[in-house]
Design a protein around this nucleic acid. Sequence first.
DNA 1: TTTCGTAATGACAACGTTATCTAATCCCGA
DNA 2: TCGGGATTAGATAACGTTGTCATTACGAAA
Lengths: 332, 332
Amino acid sequence: MRDVAALAGVSLKTVSRVVNREPGVSGDLISKVERAASQLDYRHDLTASNLRRSDRKTSTFGLIIEDVSNPFFSAVHRGIEEVARERGVAVFAASVDESPEREKDLVVAFSQRRVDAIIMTPTVREQSYLAYERRGGLVLVFVDREPRGFDADCVVTDNAAGAETATAHLLAQGHELVAFVGDDETITTANQRYLGYERAMASAATSIRPELVSREAHTTPAATREVLALLDAPNPPTAIFAAQNLITMGAVRALQMRGLQHSVALVGFDDFSMADALDPAVTVVAQDPREIGRRAAQLAFARIEDPDLPTSVHVVSSSLIRRGSGEIPPGR
Amino acid sequence: MRDVAALAGVSLKTVSRVVNREPGVSGDLISKVERAASQLDYRHDLTASNLRRSDRKTSTFGLIIEDVSNPFFSAVHRGIEEVARERGVAVFAASVDESPEREKDLVVAFSQRRVDAIIMTPTVREQSYLAYERRGGLVLVFVDREPRGFDADCVVTDNAAGAETATAHLLAQGHELVAFVGDDETITTANQRYLGYERAMASAATSIRPELVSREAHTTPAATREVLALLDAPNPPTAIFAAQNLITMGAVRALQMRGLQHSVALVGFDDFSMADALDPAVTVVAQDPREIGRRAAQLAFARIEDPDLPTSVHVVSSSLIRRGSGEIPPGR
DNA sequence: TTTCGTAATGACAACGTTATCTAATCCCGA
DNA sequence: TCGGGATTAGATAACGTTGTCATTACGAAA
């Protein structure tokens, strides 16, 4: 900037004004400065600018999600990017891989880089450690899962309601042996979805058989194993509710392996690519991850603008998409 | 930092030394400083640190890909993250959406934030505009597509060879009417894959019928339309080579719509989720996007360390995965 | 005892920018 | 002709940190 000022024959501050499009510089000088800037390959340094500026905004967000290559979370990422882009905000993205330690490391890494906000999926049992960061002015928004022990803005799917819809849909076909396959209790969404399953079963006055409940499906292969075990047991289910997209994929494989894809009903939570091209096409309760991302970003901007806003939890509703696998009747 | 120094009763410089784990500070003072730091909720400011430090490294990369929620590119992202994580580097990720203007905007946005390297998929016709950035010390690595008019490190799949393998595989089943469905010439990978298709056809002394070549499939729905047109034409193909994952998905739908999925052979370029669960399972030439990402990040680090390295193009090989759809014989 | 080398600490300037304040210039009306 | 307000430009300090150099203290060698 000093060099540009020298070449244009003006003061440093004038160059700063031109670069920041501040009013009060004559057109003559503006063009002189711009010519000098391009001649010298000048590129504005946002990090230095931020250091000095009074609002101390870096126009940067940090995003901490389960896995950047997971289709659900990458769609959330995409939604955030759409909103951030309009405001000139760049987004750091990182995967936690269900590791509490990594969650904390990432928060520190982003905080040290002075991001304006962190949008994250909590993994650590308890988020009270973030109070420290918030005191420093960092904005925190949670997506997909609500934080625990920490009051903050949050965007989630109506997990319990969606799971209830899915289960009720299977019960409405006349199924009584409806299995639940999901992840374990440490994952809040898995819990919520189990709750919805419970509610639907209770509403239909159908008792839950513990042997039809599997809560150990952490990955697609694990889900396949769990479903195979259910199918091979003495009293197999006639319908399955798979509580997450990777689990649904695993369930599809298991059903195919046993040749039961046309006889055992299946409804999955969260849509996935090619679900409509499978045979049978898979009925799902679809989330709207892109919308979740957009809302989270909007919440972050709103809070940056007014830090004293009351915290709010936004619920994005899910919708049942009937495709075939969920409409298979019992006893076929 | 000033406050920490005051509380610990030492100079600012000593705090800096402790924070950076520089040698030559007595254990006594180290613990005093650390106590003061945690008492004051002190958080090191990497942006200010970077401004002053002589190497001017921000430990930050920028990633510019087609779409963060595209499964191929999000896997590339993941690979980059794996390598970057080990070195404490945070990654900005953004989607260009095939927009040349946005590519340039993103380069500027990252450059202004003083990233150490940009890893990108080129969209603009011509990358010579980047010379400006490189003069400023920015490291540039290309992934998936080679840059044009600009010599730089690059990691690509063996597009032509993979496409040749795919096409030759179909020809080996006895097919003669092998269609090509791909994106247009502005996309270098689409070009390379068409080249491979041409080579395989030439090797088998099979002439290419222009009416079986479609190069207008930009999206999944477009691919479906193109394939339907091919199937409905007077002289339909008995086999299809789909030159990209989204196109393959579109082709699967089209074949299903016409009930031809078991009679027309299909090989796709690039694997996709659930390809093995479809009926028939889809034969593909699989790329290794995660490995592409890892290599790109490694190249970036190598060049940061030694800017005078000769530029290199790394080719990651693809592999044919036989699953069924590609092994359908002609005339069924 | 003096001198010297070494280790630990601190003072100060500087990184590239912007906020604040002051100075110069101009235009207009009285 | 002059005053006064508006407009434009510049000088200077500061943002939070680290590089450089100077200073201090201490023990060992002469």
